[in-house]
Design a protein around this nucleic acid. Structure first.
Lengths: 120, 120
DNA sequence: TAAGGAACAAACAAAATAGTAAGTATGAAA
DNA sequence: TTTCATACTTACTATTTTGTTTGTTCCTTA
């Protein structure tokens, strides 16, 4: 899944900062275009199916959705619940760790909404 | 400075989310490998020269440092103070808007430090 | 007159992230 | 027996971000 070059400067820098700086560590888990959106939908709606997430995340491709869900699961921020059915039914929800982002997400949302308005 | 393709799906998605989601907007300003670190050093030390930032940001390249400082300045998060001297002296400090990130930075730092410890 | 410091700039290259399009598995319903 | 729905894979391509290297400017001091 990961194709990161073990010893690229980029990768070395990321590791260094993740281990030595709380903020960098935090950002490494929720950074990028989609992860916070996934988290905040799950925060608001508790439990969502794959397709429900897909339709809410306007513009996301299936590949990226699956990829981000996997990464979030590996980092123990979300939980994957598989129902043995046909057609398949898979639900996602936040773990306890995922829930602990709540405050940060709320603050980031407030900051964003406040400052977005200034631009329009 | 920007070489973004006006109508790549990637760019379209970013714009859509920036305009419609506070968190996405926030993240668009502080995301990436270095920006939050720059902000938090400036938050802690008030005012820093170019070289001082460079030496604190272990591993950063000059090109990226300059680029990120420019972006932060354009987004009005930091202020560039030029002293007319030779050799040059340029200082950076947070704007008021930059300062308003304080709470978020602190929370992200706390979250990170707490959860970093669990890994070691 | 040559070297030096601070803060960049420019050309190029590598790495990482995101997107596209087509295909797979499963069993039930038509 | 073919179609259908859901939740993905896979192979490939494009875009974006990050890093490397070398060079510039300007006055100052040796």
């Amino acid at each position: 899944m990961k194709l990161r070059k073990e010893n690229s400067t980029n990768n070395i820098n990321e590791i260094y900062w993740k281990e030595n700086c709380g903020i960098a560590f935090t950002l490494s888990l929720i950074g990028g275009r989609w992860k916070i959106n996934i988290l905040s939908y799950l925060l608001a709606e508790k439990k969502l199916r794959y397709n429900e997430l897909k339709s809410r995340l306007t513009g996301i491709s299936e590949r990226i959705l699956v990829l981000k869900l996997k990464e979030l699961e590996q980092d123990d921020l979300i939980k994957r619940i598989v129902h043995a059915q046909v057609p398949p039914k898979v639900e996602y929800e936040l773990t306890e760790l995922g829930q602990s982002f709540k405050e940060i997400l709320i603050l980031m949302d407030q900051w964003g909404e406040t400052n977005l308005k200034k631009l329009f």
